[in-house]
């Protein structure tokens, strides 16, 4: 996961023009970020991704034809086939939204509130583009609360080593690879290897997915 050359390319998906222009103004003002396209419906996302090769997609949830969850799933599946592609941030009006969790399950790397401060929006894009830590771990935990899968086995079947379990717990706490390395007295490269093993054993694509699984399986308690 190296720093992408040039500015991070952002695609904005929202059916509300005023939301799109607002986000564009905020994102385009940064030297390291650039809005490459705006679309108004999930149906237009695959095309836009193919044409503009964005690094990050800011995805609204409720849209008239294809909603953000289905569009996210399409993007993620396409990336899996192509061996790479953009990461998705779901942008939502309300935090306690069932759709947000569905979108995370569908493969989104994180979510943002539309009322977030501009700095938070920009940070979120940068964090997700780097892919090195999980966005808003506390909010993820809140969302996972009460959504434990009925067959929660605490991941006993996943075959994680003790070390990998520790790494997953720290991921769920929102730590970056460098922070995990510091806490476990390991090298960053070793941590990356562990993270890679965790993702492979859980069968997920990225960190956020791994943390969602950690919460829903009961491996990390999500609380009451």
């Amino acid at each position: 996961m190296t720093e992408p050359p040039g500015p991070t390319r952002v695609l904005i998906v929202d059916d509300e023009a005023l939301v799109r222009t607002g986000l564009r103004i905020i994102v385009d003002g940064e030297d390291d970020l650039s809005v490459v396209a705006e679309v108004s419906d999930g149906a237009d996302v695959p095309d836009a991704v193919a044409r503009h090769a964005p690094d990050v997609v800011l995805m609204d949830v409720r849209m008239p034809r294809v909603n953000g969850i289905d569009a996210t799933r399409a993007v993620v599946e396409r990336s899996e086939r192509a061996g790479g592609g953009p990461r998705v941030i779901v942008v939502t009006t309300f935090e306690n939204d069932d759709y947000v969790f569905d979108a995370l399950l569908a493969g989104a790397s994180g979510f943002l509130l539309k009322r977030a401060r501009p700095e938070e929006v920009l940070d979120a894009i940068r964090v997700v583009a780097r892919g090195e830590s999980v966005l808003f771990p506390r909010a993820l935990r809140r969302l996972a609360r009460g959504r434990q899968s009925p067959t929660a086995d605490g991941l006993s079947g996943a075959g994680l080593t003790e070390r990998e379990g520790e790494v997953l717990r720290l991921m769920a706490a929102g730590r970056s690879n460098a922070e995990i390395a510091g806490e476990l007295y390991l090298g960053v490269e070793t941590v990356k290897t562990h993270v890679g093993n965790v993702l492979a054993k859980l069968g997920v694509r990225d960190r956020t997915q791994a943390v969602v699984v950690a919460f829903t399986s009961g491996f990390v308690p999500a609380g009451e």
Binding site: V19, G22, I26, P118
Partner: peptide, 16 residues
């Protein structure tokens, strides 16, 4: 809720 979201976002964008 929807309207407030839009105004918040637009105001942030304008300030920016």
């Amino acid at each position: 809720g929807h309207a407030l979201t839009i105004t918040t976002l637009q105001a942030a964008a304008a300030a920016r």
